[in-house]
Design a protein around this nucleic acid. Structure first.
Length: 828
RNA sequence: GCCCCCGUAGCCCAAUGGCAGAGGCAGAGGUCUUAAACACCUCUCAGUGUCAGUUCGAGUCUGACCGGGGGCACCA
């Protein structure tokens, strides 16, 4: 680490500077919003951290980027809300507590203190007075309150059904937390369990979650919007009713969902999800044994097995018949695992000719295939390649003669609706949000189970339901929440009848806690509700949210859902919480994510010790576009430090006094200064922070040159330029900027002095270079006035000897003039 | 399989459809120095993944393909 010594000879003592200004800033408290309406308010939000150990390189990146925006807003004169808090419930603390034989709060709050200290050193412009922790009873009281309000609206409900179970963490998981059949947190293969669990009815909001994304299209990454759309998975189709003839002679209606109702005449069998209740209810007695044995096999499968590609189709004939509502055809009903119990109706009509999955199944079991759409491709009855495109309908009764899918679908839905045997419908892939967790360190669910009264809400005036003090082995996962074993806590009298009752012993998914923290920031001490509606009206929606793309679905979808519910409760008048979103990339090393197993981790503390806070922040911001990954192996924090020293030295060279009249300074340097400030402001607004830094570097270079070989250090333009450097640098390198500002003879803090006013007249170039092209090749360059007329520019171009030479013997076909930059002569 | 994003010097990255290089890293040379470090100055290096197309003009727009990254996926 030879770079460590590099800052010695320059006279810029990084460590001493950091120590010095931290104390001053703490006294000045410059980032506390006035919150009095005197200035326009802006809410700069960054995803709050989980307190696992100290800050790491990823935190350093996201906070550096986020802080550029917040600090730019301060310099613009906005009243900025930039709060910080901790998402402090969660499993890692609980696992640590088991090992250390203590309560998770000990580990959690110790880490929070460490991180808070690091954030202060890292000089992020937070308003520390609004700090919150989701594990504080003052906070989770309102998480519980919101749960009860959701329940009153029918949006929180309990049901018994198969759920995702992580055998390692010993808890259930939401659909969103299962990635390719594995636990998102620990990677263990997820299995299924039948449990009675709490859900939020996010599916009621599926359409609104889709529709409300439209206004975000210009201000959210298209990637995130696409991911959410994928996840919600809207598909249009139809419900079609089939009569099933049961073996006892009775009939029963079974509805299927299909996106291709137009292929109804090609349905040659029906498939019911093997694990759906329906299959069990309709199976013929002589097929029951085969069915039961198949179902056992299916139950043994993990999601990982089930997702494997090229897996042969399996299934079992249920021995009953379904009647096609449009042609009366009688088709067999099968049970299979390729049909999912919890999507659509859990039953499908199989059209093997036009759906590859159905075709594979038909082939496997020798079921008939009938083509009903002639797409011009080879007949799937022979090729076993299903066709799914547009084509002419055949063997389809009233659809024959129609040649286009949309028209066919519309027509068949019309027919089904007329007959009352089907209806056009929309189906979503999104499932309800399973929020119960069988763990301790989370927000208790404020429900009491009473034998007499059933589920009873804990009365609002008894909130919060606080966690009992459990520790160590009491927290060991055992399939039910550790809270269930806390006799004193779990046994209560029913709030309604006073009889013996038990508390709900599960805790909430921590994503519930984080779905509303940004509301709480607006009035973190508020005691009459989760937030003061007026404070929220003043600050929200948040103008800018910055955080990792790993939350594209989970946290952001849930927060959007919460916001819509709060809107429907009449507490807020907007429907989207975050007006703009920025996703930073990841910090990686040598092409791969940093990890203990790879041994390629980079320690943030060591980096800061070696190069200083400012150099690390600058490296993060300058590395590239914010959303791109940063490969630390390609970065040069030493180079960043060298640049900061270079900038810092300018402040010692300036000899023009404070208050010198800039208008009398060297005009060429002044032009660079004003252009840089003008451009930098625009570049921040458009998230091009790396380019902004490059422009500051240019200004530093120009100023250096002016001092050494230009107008000299006494010229007021040098002071103007150096002050501009300090102010622009305050967005990225607050310590260096502050130190420069002081050396320039000013009082702290440079962070609040405002951007220098741009003199528009200095942005106008006296002359620009116009390029003259003949056949697209540059033949001449002309120095012209920026407001030169097209005709004058063309005349000058034609008169140029080099141009004339290039035109010799040619006829001019066309002349394109784009004054003042270009003339292109087409000749031949 | 469907969808989204990205391919520019040795490396990280710039470039409202108009001269491909702003900035940095690395490299070479020089000034300063007893020498080195630091500092300062100068310089080298690509025709934009490939192929078509639109255009007076394409890194930029369109299409196909190749390569990389990501999301969804037996979702009917």
């Amino acid at each position: 680490m030879s770079e460590q010594q590099e800052h010695e000879p320059t006279g810029y003592d990084v460590d001493a500077t950091q120590e010095k200004w931290r104390t001053v800033w703490e006294k000045l408290d410059p980032f506390k919003p006035a919150d009095d309406g005197s200035r326009e308010r802006r809410y700069a939000l960054t995803m709050f951290p989980y307190p696992s150990g100290d800050l790491h390189m990823g935190h350093a990146e996201v906070m550096a980027l986020h802080d550029v925006i917040a600090r730019a807003w301060w310099q613009h004169g906005y009243d900025v809300l930039n709060p910080i808090g901790w998402d402090s419930f969660g499993l890692p603390a609980e696992n640590a507590a088991i090992k250390r034989d203590e309560n998770p709060a000990v580990f959690t709050y110790a880490n929070i203190e460490t991180q808070a200290e690091s954030f202060k050193r890292y000089a992020i412009s937070f308003d520390w007075s609004r700090r919150l922790h989701t594990s504080d009873p003052d906070y989770y009281r309102w998480t519980q309150w919101l749960f009860l309000k959701f329940r009153e609206r029918g949006l929180a409900y309990r049901k018994f059904s198969p759920v995702n179970w992580c055998p390692n963490d010993q808890t259930v998981l939401a659909n969103e937390q299962v990635v390719n059949g594995a636990c998102e947190r620990c990677g263990a293969a997820v299995t299924k369990r039948e449990l009675s669990q709490w859900y939020f009815k996010i599916t009621d909001y599926a359409q609104r979650l889709l529709d409300d994304m439209v206004p975000l299209e210009d201000s959210w990454p298209s990637k995130v919007l696409a991911m959410q759309r994928n996840w919600i998975g809207r598909s249009e189709g139809a419900h079609v009713d089939f009569e099933i003839e049961l073996s006892d002679g009775a009939t029963r209606t079974v509805t299927v969902f299909t996106t291709r109702p137009d292929t109804l005449y090609g349905a040659t069998f029906m498939v019911v999800a093997a694990d759906a209740k329906l299959a069990d209810e309709i199976v013929a007695p002589e097929r029951r044994e085969a069915f039961t044995s198949y179902l056992e096999d299916v139950r043994k499968e993990t999601d990982i097995d089930r997702l494997a590609t090229d897996r042969p189709k399996t299934g079992v004939d249920l021995g009953v018949t379904a009647v096609n509502p449009v042609n009366g055809e009688r088709i067999p009903v099968w049970a299979a695992d390729y049909v999912l119990a919890d999507y659509g109706t859990g039953a499908i009509m199989a059209v093997p000719a036009h759906d590859q999955r159905d075709l594979d199944f038909a082939k496997q079991f020798g079921l008939p295939v009938r083509r009903v759409v002639d797409t011009g491709e080879p007949n799937p009855e022979e090729t076993y390649e299903a066709t799914s495109g547009d084509g002419a309908y055949v063997n389809s009764g009233p659809l024959d003669g129609i040649a286009d899918k949309a028209a066919g679908i519309a027509r068949i839905i019309e027919i089904l609706e007329e007959r009352g045997t089907g209806t056009g419908t929309v189906n979503f892939r999104l499932r309800d949000w399973l929020l119960s967790r069988q763990r301790y360190w989370g927000c208790p669910i404020p429900i009491v189970h009473c034998e007499q009264c059933g589920e009873v809400a804990v009365p609002e005036d008894q909130l919060p339901v606080e966690l009992p003090d459990l520790r160590g082995s009491d927290l060991k996962p055992k399939g039910v929440s550790p809270l269930a074993a806390a006799e004193d806590w779990v046994n209560v009298s029913c709030p309604q009848c006073g009889g013996a009752a038990k508390r709900d012993s599960d805790t909430m998914d921590t994503f519930v806690d984080s779905s509303w923290y940004f509301f709480r920031y607006c009035s973190p001490q508020y005691t009459d509700g989760p937030f003061d509606v007026e404070a929220v009206r003043d600050w929200m929606p948040a103008a800018q949210y910055v955080g990792g793309v790993e939350h594209a679905i989970l946290h952001l979808l849930y927060s959007r859902f919460f916001t819509k519910v709060l809107h429907d409760m009449g507490m807020i008048d907007f429907v989207e919480p975050f007006t703009a979103l920025m996703n930073q990339g990841e910090v990686i090393n040598e092409g791969r994510g940093m990890s203990k197993s790879l041994g390629n981790g980079v320690d943030l503390g060591e980096m800061i010790d070696a190069y200083g806070v400012d150099a690390i922040r600058l490296t993060m911001v300058f590395a590239g576009p914010p959303e791109a990954d940063i490969d630390w192996a390609d970065m040069s924090p030493g180079g960043s430090l060298k640049f900061l020293q270079r900038a810092w030295r300018l402040s010692g060279d300036v000899t023009a006094p404070v208050g010198a009249s800039f208008t009398e300074g060297d005009e060429s340097l002044r032009k660079v200064t004003h252009k840089t400030v003008h451009d930098a402001i625009h570049l921040v607004e458009t998230y091009r922070f790396n380019v902004m830094v490059a422009r500051i570097m240019e200004l530093v270079n120009a100023t250096r040159k002016a001092i050494d070989s230009g107008c000299g250090p006494a010229d007021p333009a040098v002071r103007e330029a150096t002050e501009a450097v300090a102010i622009l640098l305050s967005l990225v390198a607050p310590y260096t900027a502050e130190e420069m500002w002081e050396r320039l003879g000013h009082e702290p803090t440079v962070a609040r002095v405002g951007f220098p006013a741009v003199d528009e007249s200095l942005l106008v170039e006296e002359s620009v270079t116009a390029v003259v092209q003949v056949q697209g090749k540059v033949r001449a360059r002309l120095e012209v006035s920026p407001d030169v007329a097209d005709a004058d520019l063309e005349a000058a171009a034609m008169a140029d000897p080099a141009v004339q030479k290039a035109l010799e013997g040619k006829t001019i076909r066309k002349v394109i003039v784009r004054a003042p930059k270009l003339v292109n002569i087409v000749a031949g």
